[in-house]
C-alpha cells in the first residue's frame, strides 16, 4: 500500500465541529501539487496540518503519510517536512552560512559543515556569501538562501506557502525554476499553495482546488 511520496488520505480538519475541508491525494517524489483557492479556504491550515503546527483548537482526522510513515502525532521537528513561506525569513542574527548550517543535520560535523555550506552556496551562484549579513542581500539572494536552508535539512517533502508572491516578475521565474529544478533533482514531493496560475503551470503537476463549490 505504501510507497514513496506524500499521502493525504481523507485528511479532514475541522474547527468547533465544522469541517473546513477534506483532502485525499498523493504527491509522488519529484512531483509538485499546486493548491489553489480563495483566502479563507484553509490553504494555510492544510500546510500547518502537514507540518504539524495545527493549533489545538482544530481537530484533525484522516491520515498523513510520508514515504509510508504516518506523520500524525509526530512533533514538527521529526516530520522531515521542509517549508518555504512567501517571506524568506532568514534568521536575522545568523550570517548566511549560519542560516544554512542551522538546517544541516547533526551527523555532519566540524569542517564538513562549512564545506557543505560552501557547496550549497556555490550551487546557486552565491560563492563566498557565507559570512554575509542576510540583511544586506537582495530579494532574489534571500530567496535562494532560504531554499538552501530548507534543503540543507534534507527533508523528505517540501511545502511551499506562496513562495514567489513577493518577488518581482523577473526574479520570480528564475527563483521558481531553481526551486523546481532542485526538488526534482532531489525527488521531493512538493505541495505548493499559490494564487498564481503561472506558478501552477510552471510546476507542471496537478492542481487541487480548495474551497470551491463542488
Amino acid at each position: 500500500m505504501t510507497g514513496k511520496g506524500l499521502l493525504l488520505d481523507h485528511l479532514c480538519v475541522s474547527l468547533h465541529g465544522q469541517s473546513l475541508f477534506e483532502v485525499t491525494t498523493c504527491v509522488k517524489p519529484g512531483e509538485v501539487l499546486s493548491i489553489m483557492g480563495p483566502s479563507g479556504s484553509g490553504k494555510s491550515t492544510l500546510i500547518n496540518a502537514i507540518i504539524g503546527l495545527l493549533p489545538s483548537v482544530f481537530a484533525l482526522t484522516g491520515r498523513i503519510e510520508l514515504d509510508g510513515m504516518s506523520l500524525i502525532g509526530l512533533p514538527v521537528e521529526r516530520r522531515r517536512v521542509g517549508v518555504l513561506f512567501q517571506d524568506p525569513l532568514l534568521f536575522p542574527h545568523f550570517s548566511v552560512g549560519q542560516n544554512i548550517a542551522f538546517g544541516l543535520p547533526r551527523s555532519i560535523k566540524g569542517k564538513a559543515r562549512d564545506e557543505a555550506v560552501a557547496r550549497l552556496l556555490s550551487a546557486v551562484e552565491l560563492e563566498g556569501f557565507a559570512e554575509r549579513d542576510p540583511f544586506t542581500l537582495s530579494g532574489g539572494q534571500k530567496a535562494r538562501v532560504a531554499l538552501l536552508r530548507v534543503l540543507a535539512a534534507e527533508p523528505c517533502a517540501l511545502l511551499l506557502d506562496e513562495p514567489f508572491s513577493k518577488l518581482d516578475p523577473a526574479l520570480r521565474q528564475s527563483v521558481r525554476d531553481l526551486v523546481f529544478a532542485e526538488t526534482r533533482r532531489r525527488e521531493l514531493p512538493v505541495l505548493m499553495v499559490t494564487h498564481d496560475r503561472d506558478d501552477a503551470a510552471a510546476a507542471g503537476g496537478g492542481v487541487l482546488h480548495l474551497g470551491e463549490a463542488g
Binding site: T25, C26, L33, L54, P75, L210, G211
Partner: peptide, 24 residues
C-alpha cells in the same frame, strides 16, 4: 466544504485519528 480531487485515488479507508500537533 467539499474537495475537488485532482490526485490519484486512494483505496484504504481512512483511520480516524484525532491529534494535537503540538505536544503537551
Amino acid at each position: 466544504m467539499r474537495l475537488k480531487r485532482n490526485g490519484p485515488a486512494v483505496s484504504e479507508p481512512p483511520a480516524k485519528v484525532t491529534a494535537k500537533a503540538t505536544g503537551a
